[in-house]
């Protein structure tokens, strides 16, 4: 468990005057995987760069595992490792050499570094590529080697900025499995654009939008926080259900979606069973929570009134 505290965190990029973070406040005991989601320019990368001591905030306090990372960054650097967005392997070194020099930079003795590099390659299932140059590796394998560099280190907190962007579905799934193993003894803080990835992997999710932290918590906590933990989908647009207490969205001509409480979902379900309508009930997806939080889901009042 790693406590992360942010108080009144602001970041403005001087030259452009862009306000990347606006009054971010957070206090969380994070474990496993904490995922930051948000659209482009939401402030995810800025936030991760401040937490990982690469960037100074304009103002505000950030305490990571009891260390003030703004004023004493060197005290936390023993415990953290990061794979930045768009980072890549050094092209003139083999996969193993890339991992090895990273470990040497972290101060491991040569023999220990070699052992750790080989063990990380084994864990990732890419030992056969150890002596290959990056240009001879697929995109997925290159990304696995990047992850192996931080996995092989002693760092307890790992930052991964969009680690799966550009990967094919199979490579992505393989990386998820690796991250799920990694999180057993490390805290992973990652950013992603893929909401299903965040839902699948995360113990906690932080939603950022236009520099503000909108919500943070487990997926269930987020569901509760929006007030609509269930989504009822009715595949019969013409059906009338009086007195709906929830958010009604018309998905298409024949499909209606109702976000509601558990009790309301039960009531609607009873009604639908009696009407022999086709429908499904699911916990509200992260995608729907996200769009509700950023205000991109507009209720169809007309549809609700008609119902």
């Amino acid at each position: 468990m790693v406590r992360i505290i942010c108080k009144g965190l602001y970041k403005t990029y001087d030259k452009a005057g862009t306000k990347a973070l606006k009054n971010v406040n957070l206090d969380i005991d994070a474990k496993g995987i904490l995922t930051l989601i948000g659209r482009n320019g939401a402030g995810k990368t800025t936030f991760i760069r401040i937490l990982s001591t690469q960037l100074k905030p304009t103002r505000g306090k950030v305490i990571l595992d009891g260390v003030d990372v703004v004023s004493q960054p060197e005290k936390i650097r023993n415990k953290i490792a990061v794979i930045p967005q768009d980072s890549s392997l050094v092209p003139w070194m083999t996969a193993k050499q890339n991992i090895l020099v990273y470990l040497l930079w972290r101060g491991f003795k040569y023999k220990d570094a070699v052992k750790r590099a080989e063990s990380a390659l084994d864990t990732m299932g890419i030992r056969e590529y150890a002596d290959k140059l990056p240009r001879k590796l697929s995109g997925g394998t290159r990304r696995k080697v990047m992850v192996a560099t931080v996995l092989s280190s002693e760092a307890e907190i790992i930052f991964l900025d969009e680690p799966t962007t550009g990967l094919d579905p199979v490579s992505r799934r393989e990386l998820w499995n690796i991250l799920n193993k990694m999180k057993e003894d490390k805290l992973i803080i990652l950013t992603t654009h893929y909401l299903e990835e965040a839902e699948e992997l995360s113990d906690d999710i932080a939603v950022l939008d236009r520099g503000r932290l909108l919500r943070v918590g487990s997926i269930n906590q987020l569901r509760k926080s929006i007030g609509y933990p269930y989504a009822v989908r009715i595949f019969d647009g013409g059906l009338k259900i009086p007195g709906i207490r929830g958010k009604v969205i018309k998905k298409d001509k024949d499909t209606l979606q109702i976000f509601c409480t558990e009790k309301e979902a039960d009531r609607i379900a009873d009604r639908l069973i009696r009407s022999k309508a086709r429908f499904s009930i699911n916990p509200t997806s992260l995608e729907d929570i996200f769009y509700m939080l950023i205000g991109d889901i507009k209720e169809d009042i007309h549809e609700k009134e008609q119902a």
């Binding site: 650097r77 990061v82 967005q85 101060g107």
Partner: peptide, 21 residues
């Protein structure tokens, strides 16, 4: 290394000091 590989960012968030690097 800094701009194309983002190596400097990786090393800033590690125990190596700029002088040693």
């Amino acid at each position: 290394l800094k701009n194309d590989m983002k190596l400097q960012d990786m090393l800033v968030s590690s125990p190596v000091s700029p002088i040693i690097y």
